[in-house]
Structures are given as C-alpha cells and as structure tokens.
Amino acid sequence: MENIMVMAIVAGALVFAGRLFYRTLTGKNNGCGCKMKSCFVPGACRGANGRK
C-alpha cells in the first residue's frame, strides 16, 4: 500500500514537472508569479505595446 502511495505521489510530481517545463518553454510560466498577487514587481513587465 505504501509503495502505491509513493508511486502515485512521484507520478503526480512528474506530471507537474512536465507541465511546468511545457509552460516554461511556451512562455506561460515566467517563474515570478506574473499577473498574480505575488508578482515580484507589478508593472515592471509592461511593454510599449502593453503586453505582459
């Protein structure tokens, strides 16, 4: 039973890491909580064209 739980947790982490990697490569994750309350420097990434 314990082994199944461990496998499930590791598989979950693997899916999470895969999603994170995909989102990083596609520019959806920028590592700093952009567009969220925790955004490191709100407004710093505004561009000339207003895109994030």
Binding site: N30, C34, F40, V41, A44, C45, G47
Partner: peptide
C-alpha cells in the same frame, strides 16, 4: 532600473528592459 529589479527576480527585470 532593470538591474535593480534583478536583485529580486531576473524574469521581471528582463521584461522591464522593454
């Protein structure tokens, strides 16, 4: 300014170079 922001997180600092 971006260099100062870089002490926090490099990602928004790079965006601030816009």
């Amino acid at each position: 300014i971006p260099l100062l922001i870089g002490f926090g997180c490099t990602v928004p600092a790079i965006m601030a170079t816009r």
